[in-house]
Simulated scan of single mutants.
Amino acid sequence: MNVWAQTWQWLTQPNRWSWTDPAGIPYRTLEHLGFSVLSLALAALLTIPLALWLAHYRKGGFVANAVVNIGRAVPSFGLIILFWFLAARWEVNTSFWPLLIALVALALPPLFSNTYAGVISAEEDVVDAARGTGYTERGIMVHVELPLALPVILAGARVAFLQVVATVAIGAIVNNGGGLGRYIVDGFAEGAGGYGEILGGGVAVIVLALLCEGAFGLISRYAVPKGLAAEAASRSRLP
């Protein structure tokens, strides 16, 4: 049986499209998205307020650059293995926490650096005008700099979320869940008889990533005022 026939046979199994059976693609998709959304939300809570504060007071420029460089250098799979080893050593639940912590760590650099860059690039005249009208420093951060930086922050969130979605699949190697990546890992475990499952799982991950990319495009389109979006686009074209 060739790989296409194996894939069709795998896709047409009775429980393959179940929302409640762990073998179902909808079930694994929700699991995949659950890990991804939770990781992005935690990373945003940890980084955006800190980056906003540091950028407002023009502190931590070196930290922002270091975070970006570290984020580029550290392999995601290495983080998963490291946190899995630590969880096993400390007798912590290895089926949830290692992957979650690794995903949060993976999402931190683009969120932090984009928030910092977005606030730093805000027009000083606008900030000074807000300060002159009686805004407190906190009010300037929340009501002026944060909205102005929103297009850049969303761009960072987009990059972070797509990285996380791709990494959840890799996490299936050390996680009993793993979302859609579970099919790839289980397929490899079956050998030649699992090629159809590997192909089906791989395509499912790609489709999910493309859908998430499209969803973030819509969020950016409707969440960011057109004036801010145009200004952010013009900045990105500057040398």
Rank of each mutant, 00 (worst) to 15 (best):
residue 195 Y to Q: 14
residue 227 G to S: 14
residue 146 L to M: 14
residue 5 A to C: 00
residue 21 D to C: 05
residue 110 P to S: 09
residue 136 T to K: 02
residue 188 F to M: 09
residue 219 I to G: 03
residue 95 S to H: 11
residue 65 N to M: 10
residue 168 V to R: 07
residue 7 T to W: 08
residue 181 G to V: 04
residue 61 G to C: 06
residue 128 D to K: 13
residue 129 A to D: 03
residue 73 A to W: 01
residue 85 F to Q: 13
residue 108 L to H: 03
residue 57 Y to T: 13
residue 9 Q to R: 11
residue 119 V to W: 02
residue 47 T to V: 13
residue 126 V to Q: 13
residue 111 L to A: 01
residue 181 G to L: 04
residue 188 F to L: 11
residue 66 A to F: 14
residue 233 A to Y: 06
residue 68 V to G: 11
residue 137 E to C: 06
residue 188 F to D: 00
residue 71 G to R: 02
residue 122 A to V: 15
residue 96 F to K: 00
residue 222 Y to R: 12
residue 96 F to R: 01
residue 221 R to A: 13
residue 213 E to G: 11
residue 16 R to Y: 07
residue 27 Y to C: 04
residue 165 V to C: 12
residue 64 A to F: 02
residue 52 L to V: 10
residue 11 L to R: 03
residue 67 V to C: 12
residue 194 G to Y: 01
residue 124 E to P: 07
residue 158 R to S: 10
residue 19 W to V: 11
residue 126 V to M: 12
residue 97 W to G: 01
residue 227 G to D: 12
residue 162 L to M: 11
residue 58 R to V: 04
residue 133 T to D: 04
residue 27 Y to T: 07
residue 51 A to D: 11
residue 197 E to I: 08
residue 7 T to K: 00
residue 2 N to H: 12
residue 104 V to I: 15
residue 113 S to I: 00
residue 78 G to C: 05
residue 120 I to N: 05
residue 94 T to L: 08
residue 184 I to W: 00
residue 71 G to W: 02
residue 134 G to E: 10
residue 219 I to P: 03
residue 84 W to E: 08
residue 94 T to M: 10
residue 48 I to N: 02
residue 106 L to P: 03
residue 130 A to E: 00
residue 212 C to S: 09
residue 162 L to V: 15
residue 138 R to S: 11
residue 51 A to V: 13
residue 108 L to F: 07
residue 105 A to M: 14
residue 137 E to Q: 15
residue 184 I to R: 00
residue 2 N to L: 09
residue 14 P to A: 08
residue 175 N to M: 03
residue 209 A to E: 00
residue 221 R to W: 08
residue 222 Y to F: 15
residue 119 V to F: 02
residue 211 L to G: 11
residue 124 E to W: 09
residue 14 P to Y: 04
residue 31 E to H: 13
residue 121 S to L: 09
residue 226 K to I: 10
residue 44 A to E: 05
residue 2 N to R: 10
residue 33 L to H: 09
residue 44 A to M: 14
residue 217 G to D: 09
residue 187 G to P: 00
residue 175 N to V: 06
residue 55 A to I: 07
residue 182 R to L: 13
residue 117 A to Q: 14
residue 132 G to V: 07
residue 161 F to P: 09
residue 75 P to N: 05
residue 66 A to C: 11
residue 228 L to P: 05
residue 208 L to H: 01
residue 228 L to G: 05
residue 59 K to H: 13
residue 111 L to S: 02
